[in-house]
Every structure is written in structure tokens, then in C-alpha cells.
Computed example of a mutant assay.
Amino acid sequence: MRAPSGGNGGNAARLWPGIGGLAALVALWWLATGAGQAEGLAARFAPSATLASAAGLLRHPDLWLHLGVSLRRVLLGLAIALLAGVPLGLLVGGVRAVDAAVSPAFQFLRMISPLSWMPVVVMVLGVGDRPVLFLLAFAGLWPILLNTAAGVRQLDPRWILLARSLAATRAELLMRVVLPGVVGSVLTGLRLSIGIVWIVLVPAEMLGVNAGLGYFILDTRDRLAYSELLATVLVIGLLGFALDTLARWLHRWWVPS
């Protein structure tokens, strides 16, 4: 009988290829900026200058202020997307007539880039947080809605028949059978939404706001602080990676493989 492999060994086996890929990416970056011999603008984008700027930024209170504002917007946008997407997904997935009526419209709206709404949203909602939150919620809505609907369709019909045979009310059927059964699908949609919302966040914050990571990128450009600009881009990537890791952990915790 084959002995199960140790958890630490399996984690290490998965970790090292990832570290190697990141090292290769840094090496390509180093070569693309002149392998340490570049001058002028290219030198400002070199890994050494960027990492030095990143270390300085992490000690600067302004970065944490902008970071906190952006994270608050992301969480609010995702909360709005969840509050709208889960009920709509339950309805679309559970009622065929609703699915037939609204799915073409939803598919049409889903294919419109959220950023294309920026001029319209600013004219209607003005400048500030409201247009940014609308764009984030609009971007994050569709993965949650579609995955929730798919989760409802994949429910084992025997569980629903069993609940009905036990005279369960609609509310009991929803709370005890449907919602627990679709949580894994909702978390999958949430993970996809986090990636989309995080991508939309930065350009959305470049219009009509005075705080946030997108605003901070424009500020570094205007100050010609190019190494700080690239360092901010790295911080955005690291934060996005951390949010995606958290979403994956939540999914594994709820739906163990």
C-alpha cells in the first residue's frame, strides 16, 4: 500500500516552480532594462531603482492612505455585486422563464467593458466615489451572477425532492438546501470578480477622485517619479495576488478537494 505523501513535501514541490517562474520574470525585467548598464529613463525602471523606491514607499504614510481608500472601494464594490448578483443568480438559475427572459440582456450587458461607461457614469453621478463604486460593482456582478445560476442548475434534484417530500416551505428550501449548495459556486464567482474589479479599479480611480492607487499613479507620473510609478504598479500586483490567494483559501476551506 502506498503511503500518503507528506503535506509539507507536497507544498514545497508546488512552491519551488512558482519561485522559479518569478525569478525568471525578474531576470527578464533586468535584461529588458539594460542588465544594470542602462542610463536615463530605462535606469529609472530597472529592478534596483524600483525596489529601492518600493521600500521607501512602504514607509511613506501617503501610500497607506491611498491603499486604504482603494481597498475600501473594492470591498464596497464587491459587496454590492454580491448583494445584487446572488439573488439574481438564484432567480435565473431556478426559474426557467426568468432565465429565458433576461439571459440575452445580461449577456449583452456583460460584454460591454465597464470602463466604456465611465463618461456616462460621471455625467450622471458626478465625480467622487459613486461612479467608481458603480463601475466596480458592474464589473464584479457578472461572474457572481453567472456562477450562482450555474450552481443552482447543478444542484442534485434529489435533495430538492427530499425537502419537498418533508413539507419544507420555500424559505426552508432556500435556506437549508439551495444556499448551502451554491456557496462553492458563489465563492468561485467571487474570486473571478476580485480579479476583474482589481483591474478596473486603477483606471476608474484616474478620473475625478483625489485618493486611491489609480490617483497615486497619476501623481507619480506628474512628478516624473518613474521609479515610484513602477513601484506602485508592483504594489498593485502584490495586493491583487494577495486578494486572489485569500479567495482561493476561502474556496478550499468551504469546498475541500
Rank of each mutant, 00 (worst) to 15 (best):
V182C: 07
P131S: 02
A100L: 13
R153P: 05
V122K: 03
A49Q: 12
L83T: 08
L166V: 09
R170P: 15
H60S: 14
L63I: 06
V120K: 04
I199M: 13
L239V: 13
L58A: 13
A43L: 11
Y226D: 06
P47S: 08
L22N: 01
R153M: 08
G128C: 01
A167Y: 09
A211P: 02
V255G: 01
A55R: 15
E205S: 06
V152N: 10
S165L: 08
V124M: 07
H60P: 00
L136Q: 01
R153E: 11
A3T: 09
A150S: 12
L213C: 00
W29Q: 02
A163P: 01
H60R: 11
R252T: 07
G85E: 03
A27W: 14
V102F: 04
F134R: 00
T148Q: 06
V121D: 05
S5T: 12
G195W: 06
I144W: 02
L115S: 04
W198Y: 09
L179G: 02
G20N: 12
I199W: 02
L224F: 13
I19A: 15
A211Y: 08
G9D: 12
A167M: 12
W254P: 00
V121N: 03
L230E: 06
V95L: 15
Y215L: 04
D99Y: 05
D99W: 01
G56N: 11
L246F: 13
L173Q: 14
